[in-house]
Write a protein that binds this DNA or RNA. Structure first.
Length: 777
RNA sequence: GCCCGAAUGGCGGAAUUGGUAUACGCGAGCGACUUAAAAUCGCUUCCCGACAGGGGUAUGGGUUCAAGUCCCAUUUCGGGCACCA
């Protein structure tokens, strides 16, 4: 009997998979397909962490599960490589981001291979490679052509630390999502994608997706549709102010108007004697950081000195400016109804404005119906070096022109100094020669902004279908075979990425480039793995578990993978427990021993494929027949349990069922067929060991199928409750269950039951499905 | 403040969706093997009780023959949103 040596076995199988390109797939017409992917990682210098392992292993378990069911399964891999960490490293060390990225990718690939993932390595992609970002730029141009990529001057979130603008989605509690610095508002001309054009469809189709409710709700809230009306108010000198309200029926109670500090026509409205005060307030409001605004919710505002006429009451009502009205939502102006709205009420109290009870009127009487959204257009320009250059150039008048498609990619120029500055232009501006470009004989200057990294990840799932395509971003035929993606697994980007990719999908479907309108059928949102103390792992706390250490300590990748599936429900956060890792290792060790020492554990095989055991009652004697039946039942019960658990993503209980199975086999002995089934069911979790066991058992890996007929046994245990309390368990023939009278007869004959039913039975309930009798006495 | 979600042994967590609470693993204890330790194997392990029995799924109430599961209230913890008119 030899010892389980995981590192040896794993090296052997990884070599075999590498050399045979075991997971390379291509389109096979008529064969059912399955495509699975994780949210591709940003390859950091620190290498894979245990969170990646959980994420990737979920994908891998499903991948192998479907492979073993002989579907045509694609499980690609890629790297999301643009972004600040590589650039900040470049600023610090002078090393080109291209170089750092290559080193990190090489490391990630090596580590992923050590984990035994069933990846089609021929489909590896990298968003910062020119072959890839050429097509990101092409995507941009398609959006530009249709007017969905446009420039606008407006107030934007600016991170003074990273010296770039940020999208709404990248501002968390008033702070930059990357560096945590407080963001400011800055008026700049920036590029946007018009995601709002698809707001309704993005909202309405959410419910058709097999996604976690949590994510669906977050997206719905983010889009934030509300229906109401726009109502025109006129000032005394006839300037129109349009307000948005969800309650047009409360107009009788509107006793003043409030404008956002950034309201575009503010200058025309303010009365001369109030100008100084209003401009002063506006300047202060803009300087206020988002954090300050949130911390101090005390209402502030100033009177403009002007009045408007309430079209319903014909009353003259004052116009105020206050920063509780947001410029980017609705029209940037509201009618205040202090009797109905809490915020208006607070404002009216503070500034002593009239509060009148309102009578409701017909909703459509004074306004026109209007729908608005919380979601804003997606700000995509970044003043940073390490991103995909926006394929635009400006003529002498400053008008933008698209770079012709045959001139793509617009390569990232080499510079010596990566440092961004406050000029509002990225370090690309330092590449003087690169800046010049000739389009249609006219000299122009290139755009120096780069694209938000989320643009690069908004189409990568489609690139997997034809990753080396030189003529198109994706091959239409390949993509209509493979996609939409069947399973997408991640632990982040609930709104941003997962909303953007849906938006692009709808856009490219409208342009005829995609044959589907939703890119991801099923989404699995896995939980984090925390340190043993329950806290987030972080370098500074020194509580990081390195998955490579776990492997190299001798446990191996199979133990690591199986442990992370066993750790708890996949969608909940879990704390790392080094001792439980040992428990999983012991389990795999027992699996190995069953095969390597078969003579010790063997039991005569009763092959369920043979007609003998299926039909004819076994003639060799009662005991042996019972034995056969129970081991068949065990085996088929386990197949069923593991299969159904994987379909339900209950990976933890699937592993538990395998442990139970092994425990039973240790007690009762195992036939060859028992072990073959064990190895097949184990393989998705522990692919190296599973493969090794199957090789030794001389078996293929095709996923086993259970037969219900082995799950019904001759005898059943009937539970007897008296007044809902468990009092007895009775063995009966299974056929007895069909006859309630017979069951009751046996129940009432039981001595223990009789003890409780001396004074008669008021009511009896028999539940066949639960094999249960409840007697009310 | 608003909207979700959760609460089960010493710990991570199971429970066919209303039907035998605590599967599986960890930890702990006992035993076997061993000169010994490790490894391995076996047994025990919710609480009270010698037994009979009783109690028990955050707390209080309710529905039901039957509640961890459904309903109402409360507490605690997690997540999301946060002046969106």
């Amino acid at each position: 009997m030899d010892r389980y040596e995981p590192l040896k076995i794993e090296e052997k199988w990884q070599k075999i998979w590498e050399e045979t390109e075991a997971f390379k797939v291509s389109e096979e017409k008529g064969k059912p397909k399955m495509m699975l992917a994780e949210m591709f990682p940003y390859p950091s210098g620190a290498g894979l962490h245990v969170g990646h392992v959980r994420n990737f292993t979920i994908v891998d378990v499903l991948t192998r599960f479907y492979q073993q069911q002989r579907l045509n399964v694609m499980r690609p891999f890629g790297y999301d490589t643009f972004g600040l960490p590589a650039e900040n490293y470049a600023i610090k060390t002078g090393t080109a981001p291209q170089e750092v990225t290559k080193t990190n990718i090489d490391n990630f690939r090596k580590q992923a291979k050590k984990l035994g993932f069933a990846i089609d390595w021929s489909r590896e992609i990298n968003t910062s490679s020119p072959e890839y970002y050429k097509w990101t730029q092409w995507c941009f141009l398609q959006l530009y052509k249709k007017g969905l990529a446009y420039q606008k001057e407006s107030y934007q979130w600016w991170c003074p630390e990273d010296k770039t603008v940020l999208a709404n989605e990248q501002v968390e509690n008033g702070k930059c999502w990357r560096c945590g610095h407080e963001v400011e508002k800055k008026k700049m001309k920036q590029w946007f994608f018009k995601i709002t054009e698809y707001a309704d469809e993005l909202l309405d189709e959410i419910d058709s997706l097999e996604w976690p409710d949590k994510i669906k709700t977050m997206q719905k809230n983010w889009i934030g549709r509300s229906t109401g009306a726009e109502i025109d108010f006129k000032t005394e000198d006839n300037t129109k102010i349009t307000v948005f309200t969800t309650r047009p029926d409360t107009i009788m109670g509107a006793t003043f108007l409030v404008l956002a500090p950034e309201y575009p026509g503010l200058d025309f409205i303010v009365a001369d004697d109030c100008k100084d005060a209003v401009m002063d307030y506006k300047a202060k409001a803009l300087k206020k950081s988002e954090v300050e605004r949130q911390e101090n919710k005390e209402k502030t505002g100033v009177f403009t000195g002007s009045y408007a006429i309430n079209p319903a009451t014909k009353e003259k009502i004052p116009i105020w400016v206050a920063d509780y009205v947001l410029a980017g939502y609705g029209t940037g102006a509201i009618m205040a109804v202090p009797a109905m709205d809490e915020r208006d009420h607070e404002f009216a109290e503070k500034f002593d404005l009239p509060i009148v009870e309102t009578e409701l009127v017909d909703r459509d009487l004074y306004g026109t119906p209007k729908t608005t959204y919380k979601m804003r257009d997606w700000l995509i320009s970044r003043q940073r070096y390490w991103g995909c250059p926006i394929p635009i150039a400006y003529d002498k008048e400053g008008n933008p022109h698209p770079i012709p498609e045959d001139q793509l990619p617009v390569m990232i120029p080499e510079v010596k100094d990566y440092q961004p500055d406050d000029s509002g232009r990225s370090a690309l501006a330092k590449a003087k020669d690169w800046l010049k470009v000739t389009i249609d004989g006219e000299e122009m200057t290139r755009e120096t902004d780069t694209l938000d990294g989320y643009a690069c990840s908004s189409w990568y799932l489609w690139r997997y279908a034809s990753p080396h395509d030189k003529d198109a971003a994706w091959d239409k035929e390949a993509i209509s075979y493979w996609e939409p993606v069947d399973y997408y697994v991640g632990a982040d980007h609930a709104v941003a990425h997962l909303l953007y990719i849906r938006f692009w999908c709808k856009f490219f479907a409208d342009q005829g480039y995609l044959p589907f309108r939703e890119p991801i059928k099923r989404l699995l949102y896995n939980g984090y793995i925390n340190a043993p103390d329950g806290k987030k792992m972080s370098k500074s706390k020194g509580n990081v578990i390195d998955p490579l250490d776990v492997i190299n300590d001798g446990y191996g990748a199979d133990t690591l993978r199986t442990y992370e599936m066993f750790i708890g429900p996949y969608d909940l956060d879990a704390a790392w427990d080094p001792r439980s890792v040992g428990g999983v290792y012991r389990f795999l060790n027992r699996c190995y021993n069953l095969v390597s020492a078969r003579d010790v554990f063997s039991r005569p095989s009763c092959d369920d494929g043979s007609k003998k055991s299926e039909v004819s009652p076994v003639t060799t004697g009662r005991d042996e027949r019972v034995e056969e039946r129970s081991s068949l039942a065990l085996r088929h019960r386990t197949i069923k349990k593991v299969t159904e658990d994987i379909y339900k993503y209950n990976f933890n209980t699937a592993v538990a069922a395998l442990m139970e199975y092994v425990n039973e086999l240790y007690k009762s002995g195992a036939s060859k067929e028992d072990l073959v089934v064990l190895a097949k069911l184990l393989k998705p979790f522990a692919p190296h060991l599973g493969s090794e066991m199957l090789e030794r058992l001389n078996s293929d890996d095709e996923w086993p199928v259970w037969d219900e007929k082995y799950l019904v046994s001759d005898t059943v245990t009937v539970v007897v409750q008296i007044n809902g309390k468990l009092r007895a368990k009775l063995e009966m023939d299974a056929s007895d269950l069909e006859d309630e009278e017979k069951v009751m007869e046996k129940v009432l004959a039981d001595k223990k039951v009789q003890k409780y039913t001396e004074n008669g039975i008021k009511k009896q309930i028999f539940v066949k499905k639960a094999k249960l009798v409840n007697l009310v006495v």
